[in-house]
Design a binder for these strands. Structure first.
Lengths: 221, 221
DNA sequence: TTTAATTTTTAGACAAGCCTAATTTATTTT
DNA sequence: AAAATAAATTAGGCTTGTCTAAAAATTAAA
């Protein structure tokens, strides 16, 4: 049984490892959980004692099988609750993160499974992130940033790399939503900004900092 | 903003005051939150500093207006989540307490209000306990223990005084549910046991320790 | 109304999680 | 390869919420 704090560390480490594929540093974890490096070192010792991570001083951290499964379970709950909040309760996609951060720590396997079933075993959360199944398996996404798509190519928007309220609201303002088809109409080498057609209708102009954070699944031509 | 532990103390004090109407003792609170009297004294000081309770050493405790409103908000959330767990997710009424104990601490007014609406603004939880409304108002129940009903009288079962899994499962086994009509068929002076007719059909015999914990709303004749 | 029993509080400790400041190890630069 | 820089760890402390044992206050009993 893990404490709330331990769960948050494991989740943070999982996300960092997931993105980089290599061992993560104390500083990275500290930035991720918003605490001091010294506090992270303390916690890493505890997690190592509990065999949840593999850790050697000054050498960085990776998750053990057990630690990974705890982390994935937390992520699973977070994303399921986000689906509940948006689909059932009518929250907007930029409003659910903080609430799901709390709900993800509710302890009851039966609750998680019943919620999953209630929601119809969703594959992704409201931001397009995959929801691990009960065994911890996570479906592959085959996404690339919109910024990597060449002129003339089309994709379906299936996710975001930036989950901040600010960014999500910006997409709302531009009328860009999960599932929309996006075609690259124009690219500008100077600032890497692009013009895109959304659902074959409105054409809008977005900067590279925006297109980097829009994830799309490739389509032919 | 209160800590999880503070919320649990306030809830416990509220329930004790609600039942007795008088100031509650350190020992009663200790029994209720399953801790030592010394720990309770420590916490009472903190709660008094925060003006959540009115407290003088050796003299017992009552809630301040602010403390009462925090406690009622926690109870409101607990009972709303119980409705969700039973009505939406299909939990049985004896399975939801521990999960609701966790969910009651989730912080988000918007979540509470949306959940309330989603559930159709229920008046009572799966055990018949009234759900405080958004302003903290709690509807009166007009219940009496089944043991106080005289021979020949009828009532509608509307609640339980004992919320334990054991007791709830016993009622299930007897086929006694919220909303059932109950008529006193026979009373036995010796052991205070009674024979009752449930929904005008099956007649069953129950002991006083059981009838004491079944709450009914009186009906004519 | 003094003594005995009970209740409550104080004293002193401890674990979890966090902090800052100082030190140690690793990495980069020259 | 030595010096400078950056990263990580240790040392020492703080708060919250808990504990046990001892002391004080209240209540009940003789």
């Amino acid at each position: 049984m893990q404490t709330l704090s331990e769960e948050n560390y494991l989740k943070a480490i999982w996300k960092l490892v997931e993105n980089s594929g290599v061992a993560v540093s104390t500083n990275e974890i500290a930035a991720s959980v918003q605490t001091s490096p010294a506090s992270v070192t303390d916690m890493l010792k505890k997690l190592a004692d509990k065999k949840l991570i593999s850790y050697q001083r000054y050498r960085g951290v990776t998750l053990s099988a057990k630690g990974r499964s705890v982390a994935i379970e937390v992520v699973r709950k977070h994303r399921l609750w986000e689906v509940f909040l948006v689909q059932q309760l009518g929250f907007k996609w930029d409003e659910v993160h903080d609430i799901a951060e709390q709900l993800e720590h509710i302890r009851s396997n039966e609750l998680t499974e019943k919620l999953d079933k209630y929601l119809g075993f969703p594959k992704t959360d409201p931001h397009g992130d995959p929801i691990p199944d009960k065994t911890g398996k996570i479906s592959e996404l085959h996404q690339i940033p919109l910024s990597k798509l060449e002129k003339g190519k089309k994709g379906i928007m299936t996710g975001v790399a930036d989950h901040s309220t600010q960014f999500l609201q910006l997409l709302d303002k531009h009328g860009i939503h999960l599932g929309d088809s996006i075609e690259i109409k124009e690219t500008t080498a100077y600032d890497l900004s692009i013009a895109i057609a959304v659902n074959k209708k409105k054409t809008i102009h977005i900067s590279n900092s925006v297109s980097k954070n829009i994830m799309v699944s490739k389509n032919k031509s």
